[in-house]
Each structure stands twice: as C-alpha cells, then as structure tokens.
C-alpha cells in the first residue's frame, strides 16, 4: 500500500530583498510515500531550508502546490497551518530550539498545550516521550544542564509527542560531533522503522547514507533523486 505523505508540484518560493524578488526555490516536483526516509542534500544556499520550511508549513509557497496527506495546504489560512504543525508534522531544528526556562518534560509536552490536553496528561506523556528517546530521569532538568546531543533528543521527543506522520529535520546533526550524530541518526532510523516518514537535510554524506533516498538540490532545483538499495546501506 502506498500513500503519498508529501506531494509537491511546481513548488517555488521567492523572497523580497532589497535587490528585488529573489527566487530561492524555482519549481520543485517531489513525491514522498508513507514510511520513506529521505535525505536532502546540496550546497549552501541551494534552497534546502526554504523547501523544508514549506514542507513544515512554517512558510507558504509563492507558486505551485503542496499536498500534505492529499490535502492542498499551499493556500491554507495560518491557523489551520498551525494545527497541521501541531498534529501532523514534527519539526526538528539544527539549533534544538528548546525553551530555556522550562523543564524538559514541559518542553516536550509544550505542543500538547495547543492541542488542549490537561496538565497532568501532558506531564505523563512528556515523561513517556523522554523515556522513548532514552532520557528517562531527566524530566525536571533544564535544557542548559544537558549536552547538545541530549537536547536534540528532547527536541525529537517534542516532535513525536502528537504522534505525527511526518518528521522534518533541518540539519539535525549540524551542531553535533560525529559520534553524537550517529546516535541521533540511529534514533531516526528506529522511528522510521516504526513507520514514521522522515525527511532530513544534511551536508554530510555519511549522515545521508542512513536514509534510503537522497534528493540533491542545486540553485533552487532538484538535480538528482536516488534511492539507496538496502544492501548498500552502511551498517550502523
């Protein structure tokens, strides 16, 4: 059974700059099926983050259409996009983006505040998610007290809390050393094995090798789209 979680057609995004309209994304077509694990690569400035922000419903496209689970979200009003960000998508950032003054369990459970879940249920779910990323016992810590790798795990736990179909990660290992990066990638592989669709941006080939499909960007276009046969995948 195959179901397109993401289908974009002629997706383009231009930014208004001092020098005029700057096209960062120039018409991209891509379909990602349920359960896929896709790595997006390409040089700096090729439009990867622009693309991810569109996929994550954080931004709206200038041209083209974006079907998220068969619904066109290209022209959705802001509040409906917010609900999609809350329920359907989990976003993981390079800089972790945890709220520094909140405990880890509150950070992880924060999306539930916007799903209208009560305090006790939130706390319980938050701790459960922390355990899932291997951080049980850290519920009451503050983000500044734990390592970068652990912070990224917390961010992943937060992305997972509403059981999204899709996890989007823009250079999730960009701020981590190679050993920690491998641990994070192992976590992503495990989540993917559980059926969650994952799209991540990376500059490093060995990180991209964890994915089963590599999409390469250049200058606002997709220039290659290759699947890694299971046999060629690096052992972890």
């Amino acid at each position: 059974m195959s179901e397109a979680v993401i289908r974009v057609a002629g997706l383009g995004k231009s930014y208004l700059t001092a020098a005029g309209l700057f096209p960062a994304l120039k018409g991209v077509d891509l379909t990602i099926q349920r359960g896929e694990f896709v790595a997006i690569m390409g040089p700096s400035g090729s439009g990867k983050s622009t693309f991810m922000n569109l996929l994550g419903c954080l931004d709206t496209p200038s041209t083209g259409d974006y079907f998220l689970v068969e619904r066109n979200v290209a022209h959705m009003p802001g509040d409906e996009l917010a609900i999609l960000r809350n329920r359907t998508i989990g976003f993981v950032f390079q800089g972790f983006n945890l709220l520094p003054r909140m405990t880890l369990e509150d950070n992880v459970a924060l999306p539930l505040v916007y799903s209208g879940i009560g305090r006790e249920a939130r706390r319980g779910k938050g701790r459960q998610m922390l355990a899932r990323v291997g951080l049980d016992g850290y519920a009451q810590s503050l983000p500044a007290r734990i390592s970068g790798g652990q912070q990224q795990r917390v961010a992943i736990a937060r992305a997972l809390i509403n059981s999204p179909r899709l996890i989007l990660a823009d250079e999730p290992t960009g701020n981590l050393d190679s050993h920690t990066s491998e641990e994070i990638m192992a976590l992503f592989e495990q989540l993917n094995a559980e059926g969650i669709t994952i799209v991540l941006v990376t500059h490093e080939a060995d990180i991209a090798a964890h994915a089963r499909r590599q999409v390469r960007f250049l200058d606002g276009f997709i220039v290659s789209d290759t699947a890694t046969p299971v046999s060629e995948r690096q052992p972890c």
Binding site: G56, L58, A82, I83, R85, N86, F91, N97, L99, Y114
Partner: peptide, 16 residues
C-alpha cells in the same frame, strides 16, 4: 521573539 517562533512552529495559533 524566538520563543514565540518556537511556540508557533509546534502549533500555537495566533490567538494562543
């Protein structure tokens, strides 16, 4: 501002 951005990214609506 950054905190607001994070909250929006994880699903806060304008009215929230």
């Amino acid at each position: 501002t950054r905190e607001i951005g994070i909250r929006m990214a994880i699903g806060a609506r304008q009215k929230d």
